[in-house]
Design a protein around this nucleic acid. Structure first.
Lengths: 197, 197
DNA sequence: TTGTGTATATTCACTGGTCGGTATACATGA
DNA sequence: TCATGTATACCGACCAGTGAATATACACAA
């Protein structure tokens, strides 16, 4: 193991991440990843046994940071539960306005590799979405929502719908629409307490 | 012009459609399309000036039939507007159970070609989704829904979210969840008439 | 009817280039 | 001396697109 600040392996994953996200899996060749990481291809193949292995590392490296960001957005939002949920969508809309934004890497990878059902990248993507859905469900349960599981799935559907639609239309306002819907569904599922929030 | 039942060009598009949908754009090579269509590659290039041109033809050929199917499902459903909307999702869930189902071809293509913003295929996909959204909006306006445009967008988000999530998890029950959400949002947007539906 | 020109449609063989992955050798530190 | 890690050079398969020739169908003049 090299003792440098960031390991060779990390630099390779980082380069792969940027390229795969920008141009898709099949749109990026291994030489390009090696070049961007500043290593030769042989070195890359020392650390990863195949391109597929590298793809898996790319998504695995995005799992935790992505979830953390959503949770952070939720936590720092003010207002009731519906407002906190909606805030995730509003922040996402802001991200989507950056020119380099290209939707959800997990979703795009699973779409591209849809003909390889058992591909590690797809399993990692599915696990990622499951974690997000579970976090939503637990949060909703804690708020006393009876149909917490169903609501969590609905929010997930709106979120992933946003990724798909905004990627296609390049119009982030769809994310705010999804946020409204998420707000409405959450509010309707909330147990009644008093008239005003 | 050949006088056969189906033209060579149609056979090529049909072959391309099956292959591109199954394996993705970059996962299919032009030789495979030519072979499946029973023509030489040179013939294919007589009818289409490039692979991208063929991709555009693939999606253009799916536009009208896809929309017609959704409208048919909606029309033949019984019950009120929310039930008719929900029926689309239920029928889609049934389609998604077929082993060859691989999500929405428009969405998957736009995800795969996300690094080519002006690609004809993406414009065709965007136009397709826009048509569907417009049809929903007009339908909702006819039902007297004030926020018809917003509701149409929300339904679209749920629909495309279904495609993405079901493709990833291979669990069509998410489509029924989306149908519930669509039902609830439609019902809430409907102008009040009487207590029981 | 027959010959000729022309646009359409199709084939075989090929090219220039890309890509995932590897054989082999070398360096360095424990 | 042995495990770890890096470099150069290469391979075989694949792949989008093309050159040149040929077949088919039809229009029109002799």
């Amino acid at each position: 193991m090299a003792r440098s600040e960031i390991s060779t392996r990390e630099r390779i994953v980082s380069a792969a991440s940027a390229l795969f996200y920008a141009d898709g899996i099949r749109g990026v060749n291994v030489d390009a990843v090696a070049a961007k990481a500043g290593v030769t291809k042989r070195t890359l193949y020392y650390h990863f046994k195949s391109k597929d292995d590298l793809v898996a590392a790319y998504l695995a490296g995005r799992d935790q940071p992505n979830l953390a960001l959503f949770k952070q957005w939720f936590d720092e939002a003010e207002g009731g539960l519906p407002a906190k949920v909606e805030r995730i969508f509003r922040n996402l809309a802001r991200s989507a306005r950056h020119p380099k934004w290209k939707g959800c890497g997990f979703l795009r990878t699973s779409a591209e590799l849809a003909n390889m059902p058992g591909h590690p990248a797809i399993r990692i993507g599915a696990a990622h979405k499951k974690k997000f859905e579970d976090w939503l469900r637990v949060t909703f349960e804690a708020a006393g929502i009876a149909e917490a599981a169903q609501l969590a799935r609905q929010i997930l559907l709106l979120l992933d719908g946003s990724f798909a639609v905004v990627l296609l239309h390049r119009d982030p306002s769809y994310m705010e629409t999804a946020g409204h819907a998420a707000h409405a569904l959450t509010k309707a599922a909330l147990p009644v307490r008093k008239k005003r929030q």
